[in-house]
Nucleic acid binder design. Structure first.
Lengths: 213, 213
DNA sequence: TAGATTGTTAATCGATTAACAATC
DNA sequence: TAGATTGTTAATCGATTAACAATC
């Protein structure tokens, strides 16, 4: 399992994209696939695809390629998607609920088991089958579980104090949807979804094109 | 304005993050800021920050730094955030509506003027003040406007056909929230928000840590 | 065998980082 | 002036791409 470690981020991201194509192909009944074919479909360099795949540790067959089942397994294993990753949703606003209702995450092994909010009108309710607790219950509930992922979707104004509570609850992984900087100890992994970053890439390219023309 | 062109993607993304900090500092009444300070707050290399800022074309003052107003202007101008970017929301599911209700995008110059869906029960309704039209009206409505951004949040199964309609409507920029590959002509800019990519980075790091320990 | 694909090694490219001169 | 910061040039690093041998 040592090769699961240390796959570069760009490769991890592409592997997640390949997986989409591969599961789709499997549903169509395809049994064997070559990195050349994946590269074509994904608009990527074939050597790059081959290197990405090699990071997962699978060995292919020259002239044929890879058994699609084995390749899917190998990628899922590298991404840690074949075991269940238990998650707490922190903040049940519209973005939080959208994430909660997103069925695709089941494929990634992500399973929301509880949600948290400060709004007393929401506490006790269920969204998509997941019960909302008051945020003050977080440390107590988290203490029974390990390897939890905190999915953070609170208002920016309370980001730091919420993160502090998450850290106190001994949760070591935060998937952050809040556009706000906050401090965490070194052993806590944070992965950010910052929509404005992505929008910046788009709008700056639009501006670039206007100048070109 | 020539320097607005060709800023590398990593720099554009960081500039969007700096902007958050800077607007926050401005609200606090700060008037001058150094790249050294930004670097500290952002946990980045100071040279990197200085280079990012240089891409925006602003010139600083040795020993002091930058006037915060000028710096904000310069970054916003580089990202094309100081002019209004008109947008159509295509697909009004929970994710689409969450994006629509996200006030922060106003700072980025993004303005949703219409929404589209196939669901006849939604057509004619308004979400956050934006009217929902039937998707078939897209080409006609788009024909009156230029430089539109299509924000795509439809079910994966109809992604390609919806994109085809967007392309037919002569829209050249797509902000895509749908985890599905689709083909576009070369002159159409696509920027993807793929949550599963980000999740892959997080879960693979969690797996890496487990092995370390 | 011939040919397509894998796997590997080397070359290139671009972004990051280091070093340092210029400036107020 | 002294010192902090900017701006620039060079060195490093890592990812991508190219070339090619190994394999079925």
């Amino acid at each position: 399992m040592a090769q699961e470690n240390n796959i570069p981020d760009p490769s991890v991201k592409r592997l997640a994209r390949y997986l989409h194509l591969l599961t789709h192909m499997k549903e169509q009944g395809v049994e064997i696939v070559s990195s050349t074919y994946i590269a074509q479909e994904m608009n990527e360099d074939p050597t790059k695809v081959r290197k990405d795949i090699q990071f997962t540790g699978i060995v292919g067959k020259p002239k044929t390629g890879f058994f699609i089942d084995d390749l899917i397994d190998s990628i899922e294993s590298s991404l840690n998607w074949n075991s269940t990753n238990l998650a707490y949703l922190i903040g049940t606003g519209s973005l939080g609920k959208a994430v909660l209702g997103y069925k695709n995450f089941e494929r990634c092994g992500l399973k929301f088991i509880d949600a948290f909010d400060t709004d007393k009108l929401k506490v006790g309710k269920k969204f998509f089958g997941v019960e909302v607790h008051h945020i003050s219950k977080l440390p107590q509930l988290a203490s029974n579980l390990s390897n939890l992922i905190a999915v953070l979707a609170v208002p920016a104004s309370v980001a730091q104090q919420t993160v502090d509570l998450i850290v106190e609850s001994d949760i070591k992984a935060i998937w952050n949807f809040v556009p706000k900087n906050f401090k965490v100890p070194e052993d806590v992994i944070v992965e950010n979804i910052l929509l404005s970053q992505s929008l910046a890439v788009l709008t700056s390219k639009i501006a670039g094109n206007k100048i070109d023309n």
